[in-house]
Write a protein that binds this DNA or RNA. Structure first.
Lengths: 141, 141
DNA sequence: CTAGTTGCAAAGAGTTTGCATGGCG
DNA sequence: CGCCATGCAAACTCTTTGCAACTAG
């Protein structure tokens, strides 16, 4: 799709490459790049292109009507399932073997053909578990 | 929350009860009830209430910016994971034992604490697999 | 009668699009 | 120089909200 290598495109890709496991809204991304650097519409247009190329995944977070975009490292994501932390937003990759087992189990027991690219498992990652639950007002006395 | 039993509320609940495993957008629901029967805003307001009570789950489908609502049968969903078919939109329930195994596996191998209420596995259900892939234009010759 | 609900229309928020300008090749 | 990409602002869509009228209990 992309025929020209523009400054904006470079800045965006650079940013995504630096944050392979995180998800951001279009507005957050525009903010990270500096509002003056890339216009919001270009961010949207480029993300849409990247999504079509399979280099970026677009998800809908929580109950909000806002899209979140995540850079996909082809090699790391191949045949894996994603584990996204509902607290810090980072994504871990289930290893291929484990993913295969799950796929097999679901196929056998439920007759369900799991789609690895669409499915995301939500929960709390190791780091956040140890950090304890998010404090309600301040730290627990 | 709901203190009064209004006609609109009855109609909506009735409809949801009739379609426990399917997901619909607010507009689709309003349509099913008959536009003249319940106003769109009331549909939204009641769904929001039901969601807060945990009787309805709100998800964001595909890459669209539209919310989809699904009636949750408390008993059936307890401790289960949901398997939603990307083709027909219906949801099946992974049995409790299988869900427990998966939770355990993910905890041990990835240190990830799975959230059963948030996670939905996407894929193709048994029926749609046998029905073959969705025809592109018409039936395969 | 009183307080929760409804409907309508207007306000909001995120995303998309039309069009002129700008920049890559 | 030609065509793609950018920016801005207007257009869109889904969802929320304010407010007066309505109605369940």
């Amino acid at each position: 799709m992309s025929k020209y290598v523009t400054r904006q495109r470079k800045v965006l890709l650079d940013c995504l490459n630096r944050h392979p496991d995180e998800t951001f809204s279009a507005q957050e991304i525009a903010g990270m790049l500096g509002e003056e650097s890339v216009s919001l519409s270009s961010v949207y247009r480029n993300l849409a292109e990247l999504e079509a190329e399979g280099k970026v995944r677009r998800t809908l977070k929580g109950s909000v009507r806002e899209s979140y975009y995540q850079f996909l490292d082809g090699a790391r994501c191949k045949n894996r399932l994603h584990l996204t932390c509902t607290q810090c937003g980072k994504t871990a990759h289930m290893d291929a073997e484990e993913a295969r087992e799950l796929t097999r189990s679901v196929a056998k027991r439920d007759g369900f053909l799991l789609d690895k690219t669409e499915t995301i498992l939500y929960g709390v990652c190791e780091v956040c578990q140890h950090a304890g639950p998010p404090e309600k007002s301040e730290e627990t006395p």
